[in-house]
Amino acid sequence: MTNIDELVTTFTQKAQAVSAVVAEVNELRQAFEYTVDLCDHKEACQLLLAGCEAPLSPAAGDLCQRRRDKIIAAPGLDAADYQALDTLSRAKGLTLIRDGLRGYLAGIDIGLTVVDYGIAETGTLVLNSNNEEVRLATMISEIHVAVLPKSRLRQSSTDLETELEAMMRMRPGYTAFITGASRTADIERVLALGVHGPLELHILLWEDR
């Protein structure tokens, strides 16, 4: 096995252990197809999961009413990639956005990002989130789909120290380590996913060699 294959194996195991869904793609287009397909088959506002079905106070209930179309946000993509994803989305009647995410704070269906690095030993994604839209896409989406180029996999955070330090030196800088979906065990230590952030994390390992 090559080094990268070993990293992929470890990464996959560790990410799955924290309930991430891990799949592999050979090109970015496949990742777009995956995302659109996921969104298409997903219920709007994940009624059974995200709380709209629960009895809510009027203010919180209002948020549910504001949700209509299914929305994918992909703020970090370049123009050509964005165009490709947009075409796929439209074909399924989905709305694709890249900015103005503050208009959708009640929640969007999917946030799609291409992340900067992966840390195999903990199944962690490293994402430069200086761009507020990128930040929001990974926070207010019900599903976060992250594309991780295999060449960006490292064994441990220590192996990434130089790169991370460069990110810390950005003024300003907002760097996120993301491992699995948002979780809590605050009620009777029972694990529950999706307390404030995404309910699901899908990681697409991209064969970029």
Partner: peptide
């Protein structure tokens, strides 16, 4: 908590972009 790592570790250097602020920061 017996976790290898928590779901999120957030590293913040300085005031970032913020659309809610009149200055954008």
């Amino acid at each position: 908590t017996g976790q290898a790592i928590t779901s999120y570790i957030t590293w913040i250097t300085g005031p970032n972009e913020c659309a809610a602020s009149p200055t954008g920061k």
